[in-house]
């Protein structure tokens, strides 16, 4: 028989806290996020999206209370550092192959609705 350490594992129910208050996002928040992410969210689904995102934010809320004083953020699991590439030209022109994938291209250019600076 295996003797296991005291059971204190994650319990799904733990996160189903009844109050969301702090992490609730509303329609305005979703509109702002959707604008930043350039994603159209239709009016009909916006409340549903707000609710599900509030749920996710509720889930991650507990991170805030963890004491991470003096802990370095982890960027690469092995704390590896960047290798640098020698400066040489290794690519050849593949415009034709790439632009065959483009929704709209002409005269070697990708076309988009007028760009206004």
């Amino acid at each position: 028989m295996i003797t296991l350490a005291p059971r204190q594992g994650p319990v799904p129910g733990d996160w189903a806290s009844p109050t969301h208050a702090e992490t609730d996002v509303d329609r305005t928040d979703i509109e702002k996020l959707a604008e930043l992410a350039r994603i159209e969210i239709t009016g009909a689904t916006i409340d549903q999206v707000a609710d599900s995102i509030s749920d996710v934010l509720q889930l991650v809320e507990q991170l805030k209370s963890v004491d991470t004083e003096g802990v370095e953020p982890l960027a690469h699991p092995l704390d590896a550092v960047q290798r640098l590439r020698a400066d040489s030209v290794t690519e050849t022109d593949q415009r034709e192959a790439f632009q065959a994938l483009a929704p709209a291209a002409e005269a070697g250019l990708f076309l988009v609705p007028k760009v206004i600076e």
């Binding site: 709209a104 002409e106 005269a107 070697g108 250019l109 990708f110 076309l111 988009v112 609705p113 007028k114 760009v115 600076e117």
Partner: peptide, 15 residues
Amino acid sequence: KSLHEDFHGMSGIDL
């Protein structure tokens, strides 16, 4: 670069 010459009302993108 965005090229603003008119391509049927569109801009051309050169990367």
